[in-house]
Structure formats: structure tokens, C-alpha cells
Amino acid sequence: MIPNNHSNCSDHLVFFIHGMGQQYEKYGNLQHHVSTIQKNTTNLLSSRYPEKNLRVKYIPIEWHSEVQKRVGTDILKSTLATVPNVRLTINDWLLDNFSKPHGQYIIDSVCKQCDVAYQNHKLEYPEFDGHVHFIGFSLGGIIAYDVASMQWFNQDGLPPWKNKLTSEQTCQMPDISVPQLQFKIRYVFTCGSPIDYIQYRPPLRTRVYNIFHPFDPLGYRLEPMINSDYILEPVQIHRLKRLPKIPNLGIRSSIAGAKPLLQSIWQYVSSSVTSNIQEVRMGTKRKEGDNDDITPIHKRRKLTHDVSVTLGGIQGKDGLSYPRTDYVLSENMIDAYASEWIIALKSHFRYWANRDLALHMIKVFLSDENVALH
């Protein structure tokens, strides 16, 4: 094997599933995002693990245009002509956040693209015998999780919605048909994705990393859904060395003219995504009270009830043992001075450029090979 050469066969194939907005299908933004995380991964492998023959390849999966094909023309005809740039942006968020009628279309498109990309990779590199993973951002993480949750094979045992569980652990099969992929999913990395674990989950062979920035309004924890008495803080992702962090002296910069608009847009987007999460989740139904324990990390109440934590994992109320799932990134130096609305936008839409995230994924991939990490 040729180390760190991504033009050759990859040991790890990662499908990059984008989040909200038309920005991903135009102007080459999706390709730019994938290129950025690919470059960060390659550079970190070369600088930190030059002796390892690890190769990682990211492949973009673009689903937004599939929704546009169905409803884009109608909504454009209904859009007012005033403030066109703002209205086009809101249209994109509306289409993506309220996509329940188009959920099957999105799932079919994502699964088909993944299968085709996987087969093309196998045709080009018949010797490929590596792992396949998903990384999804915002709504893309929800899509990735939904697809992975329906990839149960006979050797995986019964899916949770077919097991007899306690009333608070009742799982429901999602009201959508998910094709069985031509490959098994090893890891799912979700970034700023409000996932409803209670309803259903992937088989245990597929490990989920729920990654969030501490200031991301759409970042939520999963571990309290496994056991509501879980009291440990999320795992801190290793922070690469940067310039010394300047303390926050109470000086917050803001763009005065843009702040009211950013505030209202962000409040609308964050509230619509979280309050309509089942709309995004392609028709699944949540029972009242299922998600009562899910609150932002900085507002979580410290609990002291007994909870079984063994080998870095947690004993779920379904009787199974789960590895750690919640992982938090570190804030940046600029976060000390930017307004909270700028921080919120930046933290939610910049996961793909975060080098700490790329390094975390590398460490996860290397851990499969029992490599000593540093």
C-alpha cells in the first residue's frame, strides 16, 4: 500500500451527506467542503501518522436538487419579488426542514448515490476491502442516521422496534422504506444533528459518533436517551495546538445592520428544525414525553441517580451496553469576541472545515487497527 495516497485504493470510504440549503448544489460549494475535509485529513495523516498506511476518501452525496426537482418551480412561482436573496435562502430552508412529503425521494436518492459510488469504487479498485462510513451535517446527519438505522441483517439480531421493551423505551419502525445498501456501515458521524434515538437506532456493529460544537443551537446529546440517569459530560475531542486563546473581556463584536436579520433567521431555523424534527425524520412519530430529557448541554441538570458505566460505556435501559456516543468540539479564539448569533451560525455551518473533527475521525479509523494513538 502507498501511504496517504488518495488517488489509489482507500482503506476507508466516507460518504459526505450535506445539510440544509441550495448552496450545496451550486457554485461548487459541496465540492469545496469535501475537498477541505479531504485536505485536512490527508495533511494530518502525513504530519501526525507518516508511518501509517491509512488512506481515507470522501465522496459527496448531494440530495437537495432531488427535492428541487419536485417542488422548486412551484415555490418560486409563489415567492414575492422583494428582498430576493433573503427569500431564496428561506425557500431552501423551508424545503429542507419541512420535507416529510419528499422524504422517500431523499432517502432513495441518497441510497442510490451511495450504492453507485460504492460499486464504482469497487470496479476501479477490485482489491478494496476497507470500511464504509457516513458523515452527515445538520439535516444530512439525520438522513445518515435514518439510513443506517434500517440496515439490520440477520446476524445483527432483532431491531429494537421488534423487541419487547419497557414503555419508555418503545421503538417504532419509521414510516418510510429504506433500501438495503450493498455494503455495511461501520461508523456514522453526525455533526450538529438533532437525532431522535428513542425511536430507532442502527445495529450495534455500526457505531454512532454524535459530534457537536458547544455553541451550536442544533447540537443535542444522545446518551441521556440511552439512559436518562447518565451524568458524565460528553467526551472532549482532542484540540490541536493553536495560538493562545485570548480571554473574553466582555468585548463582543457584531455586525449591527445584519444582527437583527441573522437573529430572526436563526431563531426561525433552529426552532423549526427542533420542534419539527419528526417532519424531518421522514414521517416517524414520537410519543409525548419521549424527549423530555433532551436539553442543551449547558442547561442539563446534574443527576445523581445510579447509572452503570463500564469500560467507557453505558448500560442502557434496554439491557444492552453502549459505547460513548456524545463528543464535543472546543470553541475557537474568535468565539470569545463574536456575537452569540455569529457564533451560532459559524459553529453550525463549519464542521467540515474543523481540523479537530478530521483528526478525531482519523483516530477512530486507526483504533480499528489497534494502533497506539497520540
Rank of each mutant, 00 (worst) to 15 (best):
R300G: 08
Q31R: 12
H133Q: 07
D74H: 13
Q236I: 05
A256Q: 14
D293M: 09
E279K: 08
D293E: 10
I17C: 04
Y58V: 01
V110P: 01
I90W: 02
P214D: 11
I251Q: 06
L261H: 08
H12E: 10
L359W: 05
G250A: 14
I17A: 08
K299F: 13
P234D: 01
I342T: 03
Q172R: 09
V371P: 10
Y145T: 12
D96A: 03
P234M: 10
S270N: 14
Y209M: 02
R239D: 09
R87P: 01
W63Q: 02
Q172C: 00
T82S: 15
K112C: 15
M20S: 12
G136V: 01
H12M: 04
L357W: 02
R355N: 05
D108W: 06
P202E: 06
D96T: 07
T304A: 04
L222K: 03
I59L: 05
K302E: 09
L88V: 00
L30Q: 15
N154C: 06
K241D: 03
I185A: 02
D356W: 09
N248P: 02
K184Q: 11
G316M: 14
L243D: 08
S35D: 04
I362E: 00
E25D: 13
H18R: 09
L165D: 07
N97I: 11
S254D: 02
G283D: 06
I195G: 02
A358F: 08
I265L: 11
L261W: 15
T295G: 01
K245T: 09
I185N: 06
F365H: 15
I185R: 02
I185K: 03
Q315K: 13
K69C: 03
G19Q: 07
I231M: 10
G19R: 02
K52R: 07
R70S: 11
Y268L: 12
A358C: 07
R242L: 03
T73A: 10
G257C: 04
L345R: 11
L329F: 00
T89H: 05
S271Y: 12
N43W: 01
I198A: 15
I90E: 04
L366N: 02
K299Y: 07
D129M: 10
V364C: 09
F98H: 15
Y187F: 15
I294S: 05
K69N: 11
P323D: 14
G283T: 01
G28K: 13
I143W: 05
T274A: 04
Q180P: 01
D292W: 07
I75P: 04
D108T: 14
P126V: 06
G257R: 02
S46M: 14
V235M: 01
G313I: 05
M150G: 13
P194C: 05
P126D: 10
I211N: 08
I2D: 07
L357G: 00
G136Y: 03
I59N: 00
D356S: 11
I277S: 09
L262C: 12
Y24Q: 10
D156Y: 02
E279Y: 06
F16Q: 09
I107E: 04
I176K: 02
E331G: 09
A144E: 04
